[in-house]
């Protein structure tokens, strides 16, 4: 039997996790024109904080603690490293890249390099079309849909969200209207950290973390964002689903060996055919 249910479920799960990751990455680009190469560390560090603390304080507190820390880390990385270098894009790329390395090596030096996992909130399994799936899968699905929906609402309705949209659309005009671009960018980086952190909270129990994984997170987020168009939120979500299903499809029907190749193929094809992504804005001089 063709495990079509598995293909769809796994694809949807990857898609929703990557949707969370790409959303923040894309938001930061839209608001600040910054590609944050340390994006993967938000995911990685959240996973590790939970892993390091859950045995002592319990899984619920571990999750809360990890999310608080990661949001603070996001804010600090903006205030201490990105903001002072805002004029120099090369420096921002290098410093965020180094920050990613710092965290990877920190984990290797003070922890170890082998993969770890954390327990799920829910046990048991749910059977669909005769295939049993761990209940955690459905936590991931429902959780990420709720978070993406809340983020969408937040961006369109709240005051911060409106500043975020105003700045992404027209920086100068927004600043003339009295919007503080720096503060908005700081909130955006914090939101992106929180989204990546939530992705880790949901997905790490169903998979594993290892120090090098931050780079995979980054490259997949990048592929999705290129696909959807940098700075386009709708693009990120649609891109995440296409990437998720493609990977899952390749995994099952072709060969898992090729699924790691999917992002680069996506990137190259899109750059060749539609250089600004599917939903991308036109570049203006």
């Amino acid at each position: 039997m063709v495990p079509i249910a598995e293909v769809i479920i796994f694809g949807t799960i990857e898609a929703s996790v990557y949707g969370l990751l790409a959303l923040g990455f894309s938001l930061v680009y839209g608001v600040g024109g910054i590609l944050n190469l340390s994006h993967g560390l938000f995911y990685l560090l959240t996973g590790y904080i939970i892993f390091w603390t859950y045995t002592t304080i319990g899984i619920v507190w571990a999750v809360i603690l990890a999310l608080i820390i990661i949001i603070i880390v996001g804010g600090l990385s903006y205030l201490l490293l990105i903001k002072p270098l805002q004029e120099n894009h090369v420096a921002i790329l290098i410093i965020t890249f180094s920050l990613g390395f710092f965290v990877e090596q920190f984990i290797k030096v003070f922890g170890d390099a082998i993969p770890h996992t954390v327990p799920s909130f829910v046990g048991g399994a749910i059977t669909i079309l005769g295939v049993p799936f761990p209940s955690q899968f459905f936590v991931i699905l429902i959780g990420s849909f709720i978070v993406i929906a809340i983020t969408g609402l937040f961006i369109s309705k709240s005051k911060i969200g409106k500043s975020i949209r105003a700045i992404s659309q027209d920086r100068e005009a927004a600043m003339l209207m009295g919007i503080n671009a720096d503060r908005t960018l700081m909130y955006t980086v914090m939101i992106s950290a929180a989204l990546a952190g939530i992705a880790a909270v949901l997905y790490v129990p169903a998979s594993s973390i290892a120090p090098h994984m931050g780079w995979d997170v980054l490259s997949n987020s990048f592929a999705i964002v290129i696909f959807g168009g940098l700075g386009s939120l709708k693009g990120s979500v649609v891109g995440a689903f296409i990437l998720g299903y493609t990977r899952s499809f390749v995994n099952y029907f072709i060969d898992p060996a090729f699924s790691a190749l999917v992002p680069i193929v996506v990137i190259i094809l899109v750059l060749l055919i539609r250089p600004r992504g599917i939903f991308g804005k036109k570049e203006v001089y």
Binding site: L35, L37, D216, S219, A260, L271, L272
Partner: peptide, 18 residues
Amino acid sequence: LRLKGPYLGLATMVLGLI
């Protein structure tokens, strides 16, 4: 290189991982 800005850098990084 069809694009400006930091795409090149990230595209090279992704290809390196692949």
